[in-house]
Computed example of a mutant assay.
Amino acid sequence: MSDTGVTRVRLSGIGDEAAPGLDRQIEAVRRLGWDSVELRSVDGVPLADLSDAAFDRVVGGLADAGLGVSCVDSRIGNWARTVVSPFADDLTELDRLAERCDRLGTRCVRIMSYPNSGLPEADWEREVLSRIRRLAARAEDAGLVLVHENCAGWAATDPARMLRLLDAADSPALRLLFDVGNGIAYGYEAYDLLADIAPYVAHVHVKDGTGDTDAQFYSLPGDGNCRVADSLRLLFDRGYCGVVSIEPHINIRPHEGWSDPSGDYVDEFVAYGQRLEKLVSELGPAAGRA
């Protein structure tokens, strides 16, 4: 760490990696003493698809627990929606989430950049940039910030393409989400992206593990090959002071329809968060706990 001052970050976690139900998601982050949860699904239903009554219960439950929301994870441009999927689905989801983010008190929405589905490279690029430009403009009007994750899509693994997205959008409503562990499944070293994109990173996911594109074996942060400490150190040295959110992937991956049937995941989620706290403390910055 540089000696210019103490970097302050907030720790959070994607709640449905602890449990499907909101009560257990809340319990997991409260046991860690954290002040926010990252929302992707509740009871197996993506946030945008919850009924109004179910969403009202989410808002009320979080308020009663005194928890904020660090980010909501949309399906916009993700691995299940290719560049030829109906763009109207993404616009509808963004409009729905804009209303819900306002009630949740968050501005941050995770997106990706559309896997290809048979288009020539030039057409794929053209369509992705057009969609991202329109999404960013809509998000800016709604007071949201879209954070593009290095996961699936045209700009998933290439820092030059990530910067091209930002240039094309030309909007403060588009920034980057850096996931430390995504390189395992997609066949690249995530840390190698950071030197180019660090100034534009507005949200961080932490997972760790070993493996390759055929099989991944996830672990506690620091026990795998994803250079978690090196990545966080570089980000902190570049002045990052946003949210660092855990996505363990060890016992449950709701978006993939996979879970270990052996039992309760809240304890494992808490242990994962405690390991991240220790790692962050060793690097120097203080984890924010409002």
Score class of each variant (00 low, 15 high):
192 D>I: 07
185 A>R: 13
211 G>M: 10
233 R>D: 15
253 R>Y: 02
210 T>A: 15
212 D>C: 11
225 N>R: 15
209 G>K: 05
184 I>C: 05
225 N>G: 14
217 F>M: 05
216 Q>A: 15
222 G>L: 14
203 H>M: 09
206 V>N: 11
193 L>C: 12
205 H>Y: 07
249 H>R: 08
201 V>N: 06
203 H>P: 08
237 D>K: 02
187 G>W: 01
193 L>H: 12
210 T>D: 13
233 R>P: 13
231 S>K: 06
238 R>C: 01
251 N>R: 15
208 D>E: 04
211 G>L: 10
209 G>S: 07
249 H>M: 10
254 P>M: 14
226 C>D: 03
190 A>F: 06
221 P>I: 02
248 P>E: 08
190 A>N: 06
205 H>W: 03
217 F>C: 09
241 C>W: 01
218 Y>V: 05
225 N>Y: 11
242 G>C: 11
226 C>Q: 14
220 L>N: 01
200 Y>H: 15
238 R>H: 11
254 P>L: 12
191 Y>L: 14
253 R>H: 05
213 T>S: 13
252 I>H: 11
219 S>G: 07
222 G>M: 13
193 L>N: 13
225 N>I: 13
228 V>R: 13
231 S>D: 09
193 L>G: 08
184 I>N: 02
218 Y>N: 11
218 Y>G: 01
196 D>C: 06
219 S>L: 15
227 R>S: 12
198 A>P: 06
228 V>G: 10
192 D>Q: 09
248 P>K: 06
241 C>S: 15
231 S>I: 01
255 H>P: 02
205 H>K: 07
239 G>V: 11
228 V>E: 06
186 Y>M: 11
236 F>E: 00
188 Y>F: 15
248 P>R: 13
224 G>S: 03
218 Y>K: 02
184 I>K: 01
202 A>I: 05
216 Q>I: 05
253 R>M: 14
234 L>S: 02
215 A>G: 04
196 D>Y: 00
250 I>L: 12
245 S>Y: 00
229 A>V: 03
195 A>N: 02
192 D>V: 07
243 V>F: 13
235 L>F: 07
205 H>I: 03
203 H>W: 08
221 P>A: 07
198 A>V: 13
210 T>Y: 04
248 P>T: 07
215 A>T: 10
223 D>Q: 12
188 Y>E: 03
203 H>D: 11
249 H>K: 08
191 Y>H: 15
206 V>D: 08
192 D>F: 06
208 D>Y: 03
196 D>P: 01
231 S>M: 07
230 D>R: 00
186 Y>D: 06
250 I>D: 08
256 E>M: 12
204 V>H: 05
228 V>C: 13
248 P>G: 09
251 N>D: 12
243 V>K: 00
256 E>I: 00
232 L>G: 07
202 A>E: 11
191 Y>P: 04
196 D>M: 08
186 Y>K: 08
217 F>K: 10
204 V>F: 12
196 D>F: 00
248 P>C: 04
214 D>S: 14
224 G>N: 11
241 C>F: 00
199 P>Q: 06
255 H>C: 04
250 I>E: 04
245 S>W: 01
215 A>S: 11
219 S>C: 14
207 K>S: 11
254 P>C: 12
187 G>I: 08
201 V>S: 09
209 G>N: 10
210 T>P: 04
190 A>E: 05
244 V>H: 12
199 P>I: 09
249 H>C: 11
217 F>N: 12
204 V>M: 08
245 S>H: 01
215 A>K: 10
207 K>E: 06
227 R>K: 15
245 S>G: 01
204 V>E: 02
